[in-house]
Design a protein around this nucleic acid. Structure first.
Length: 218
DNA sequence: ATCCCGAGGG
DNA sequence: CCCTCTGGAT
């Protein structure tokens, strides 16, 4: 099957069945989203949503977070992965927001990536969700699902390469939605360890299913 | 033992 | 390129 046809069927299916996807992280403003996305690295959204209400109540805006001690922030996020690093990142991020951007969340990839704890993936999420820009954040789900479905070539071995492969074939107006579609599919159907091919509606054009359903596959 | 919406440093 | 960070769920 042609790559173009794979993308067409992928977009068609989710447009039909999940027309308005959105992030499952809970947030009330761009600042809260930025904090939540930084915390979400190598951690489930569910856990972030469990600790974020008390964190946002104590540090409701960049000013209070910038003035906080790393030790106190740590006590709010101790149950997420890498709490020491993330506590430092959050305080450093808030200080950089205050000093360089007047407390506002910047709207360019370059500016966002200057913030401590904000790499290419997090910056793309902010651009996509907050500013609705056609950018593709490639996380572990997007990376895995893109390869399995055959939306990214096996030669795309880095997140950036997968990002370029997806951007080359997804119409701009679908990019923010496609980001969520790939994540949701990875989270609930195309699981890393035990993909639920039995209930997957996309296996008809999935390269991974094509392989695992071969007669002699072990 | 492996995975979860990665980033920073060597 | 590699390594480290490092809690909780499965």
């Amino acid at each position: 099957m042609q790559k173009k046809e794979r993308f067409r069927r992928f977009l068609e299916y989710f447009t039909q069945h999940y027309p308005e996807p959105k992030t499952e992280l809970h947030f009330g403003n761009p600042y809260e989203l930025l904090v939540a996305v930084i915390l979400s690295a190598q951690c489930t959204d569910k856990r972030i949503n469990q600790i974020s209400p008390s964190l946002f109540a104590r540090f409701p805006e960049p000013e209070s977070l910038a003035a906080a001690s790393v030790d106190e922030v740590f006590t709010y996020i101790r149950s997420v992965s890498y709490p020491n690093n993330k506590a430092k990142h959050l305080v450093g991020m808030a200080n950089a927001l205050m000093e360089k951007f007047g407390g506002e969340i910047p709207a360019t990839l370059e500016e966002l990536q200057t913030l401590p704890g904000v790499g290419r993936k997090t910056a793309h999420v902010i651009l996509s969700v907050v500013y609705n820009e056609p950018t593709m954040a490639v996380d572990t789900h997007v990376f895995r699902v893109s390869h399995r479905l055959g939306l990214a070539p096996l030669t795309a071995t880095t997140p950036l390469a997968v990002e370029k492969a997806l951007m080359a074939h997804i119409p701009k107006q679908y990019v923010p939605k496609a980001h969520h579609w790939l994540i949701l599919h990875g989270r609930y159907v195309c699981l890393a360890r035990a993909p639920r091919c039995g209930v997957c509606e996309l296996k008809g054009f999935c390269k991974y299913y094509e392989k695992v359903s071969e007669p002699g596959f072990s």
